[in-house]
């Protein structure tokens, strides 16, 4: 494997669940979601993470992006020049050093307009300090105009001129369709300054006709923008089409690893995905 951007080293995560047992007493039950998991994510490639429902894929993403703290183990992020231990960092810090995240359920700003959703995702936070938005109005206006220009360009690059997103830029995001929301969630990642994108099931719940478009976008992240994509995907067709590498997660560990073709021929994977 080539140089890695993410170095996941013996990560363990368990949850404790407090339940009322049959006798009506409280009881703690501890179960491991991720159990001593190691993984290298290669730079500049698309790596897919597959596994059954509840295998812990989203939890792994949550650990990488800082929303959940692991019990033990480290995550190293290899920036352009140096490698940073991000296991104890906060989500916003991790985002700022270049790891972008798209959530499994749509987490876009429902009450902001389509355009505002893009602008707020920009890596430049100049006007967000109230003093700047008040006293340095000229610079602020400039920054805003640049952001708008950037958003327009991104929409045009991806969806062509006269795309519906730009036309509906002042609509509230909550009025978009589910598939459009996912596309927006994906495109807004381009406003940021990221090296690595964690995409949690980008094609889930969207119409089959949009899936090729989503695949195009993901491929363009890697081909045109030199980003690295780490993606969770249940749709094997997408994995086979776009992923360079594939890892299969089961019982809290990586059970199979390789090219998508190799992994798909693994018996356990077949059992889950083909029912065979």
């Amino acid at each position: 494997m080539s140089e890695s951007i993410l170095n996941i080293d013996s990560i363990t995560k368990s949850f404790v669940k407090n339940i009322v047992n049959v006798h009506g007493n409280n009881e703690d039950e501890r179960y491991f979601i991720i159990d001593d998991l190691d993984l290298l994510v290669p730079k500049g490639k698309i790596t897919a993470l597959i596994g059954g429902n509840g295998a812990g894929k989203t939890t792994l993403f949550n650990i990488i992006s800082g929303f959940v703290e692991s019990d033990s183990g480290t995550v190293l992020y290899n920036d352009k020049s140096n490698s940073i231990n991000i296991s104890k960092m906060k989500p916003e810090q991790i985002a700022r050093i270049g790891i972008g995240r798209m959530f499994q359920d749509n987490h876009i700003f429902q009450n902001l307009s389509v355009l505002e959703n893009m602008l707020i995702a920009d890596s430049n936070t100049f006007g967000e300090i109230p003093i700047n938005s008040f006293f340095r109005t000229k610079k602020n206006k400039e920054v805003e105009e640049n952001k708008i220009e950037k958003a327009k360009e991104i929409f045009e690059n991806i969806f062509g001129n006269n795309n519906s997103f730009w036309e509906r830029k002042n609509d509230k995001a909550k009025n978009l369709s589910y598939g459009q929301k996912r596309l927006l969630g994906l495109t807004r990642l381009l406003m940021g300054n990221y090296q690595l994108l964690l995409l949690d099931e980008p094609s889930a719940g969207v119409n089959a006709s949009i899936i090729p478009q989503i695949m195009e976008i993901i491929k363009s992240f890697v081909d045109d923008k030199d980003l690295t994509v780490f993606l969770i995907e249940h749709n094997m067709k997408v994995v086979l089409d776009i992923a360079d590498f594939c890892c299969f997660m089961s019982h809290g560990k990586i059970a199979a690893l390789g090219t998508p073709d190799d992994v798909i021929s693994n018996d356990e994977v077949r059992k889950i995905y083909m029912g065979a």
């Binding site: 992006s65 929303f67 906060k90 989500p91 916003e92 985002a95 972008g100 995240r101 959530f103 987490h107 876009i108 700003f109 429902q110 009450n111 902001l112 505002e116 602008l119 707020i120 995702a121 936070t125 100049f126 006007g127 967000e128 300090i129 109230p130 700047n132 938005s133 602020n140 920054v143 805003e144 807004r188 940021g192």
Partner: peptide
């Protein structure tokens, strides 16, 4: 932009953290 960010807090803190 500050007001926009506040609206972001109101709408979806998780999403704001992730950016």
């Amino acid at each position: 932009p500050f007001g926009r960010a506040l609206k972001g807090v109101r709408d979806d803190e998780l999403s704001l953290l992730s950016i």
